[in-house]
């Protein structure tokens, strides 16, 4: 995830641009991910298994590196990992588990 080309604006330039509703720094997926690195997250896989931990980093495939990871299956902790690499194709969502 490099910073090189600035992403295109969300909508095409418009003659009558309405004022942006509220400019919070969380909009696009990229912005969300920038804000959530280093925070506690819940990563849910398509299988329904959850991984809770601190998000170290991720890439464009949604491959994820987590620290202090707990694996939750049906509400029970089933494993703990110091570090974990999660392959992105399994990821259903990444949810912030603390205030951003």
């Amino acid at each position: 995830m490099d910073e090189s080309p600035p992403p295109p604006p969300d909508d095409a330039p418009d003659t009558q641009t309405p004022p942006p509703p509220r400019t919070i720094h969380t909009g696009s997926p990229t912005d969300f991910l920038k804000g959530v690195v280093g925070k506690k997250v819940i990563v849910r896989l398509n299988s329904g298994v959850d991984y809770r931990g601190v998000l170290s980093c991720l890439d464009g495939y949604m491959n994820i590196a987590l620290e202090q990871t707990e694996e939750h299956v049906e509400g029970n902790v089933t494993n703990r990992y110091g570090d974990a690499f999660i392959r992105g194709n399994n990821v259903l969502y990444i949810s912030a588990a603390e205030e951003l």
Partner: peptide, 26 residues
Amino acid sequence: VLEDVTEYEMTPQGTKKTKLGQTLLN
């Protein structure tokens, strides 16, 4: 990217609801 999220999981045993904060949905 969603905020104030509710997840609904439909299972034969019923619907399971989960509340989530800001979430990036694949």
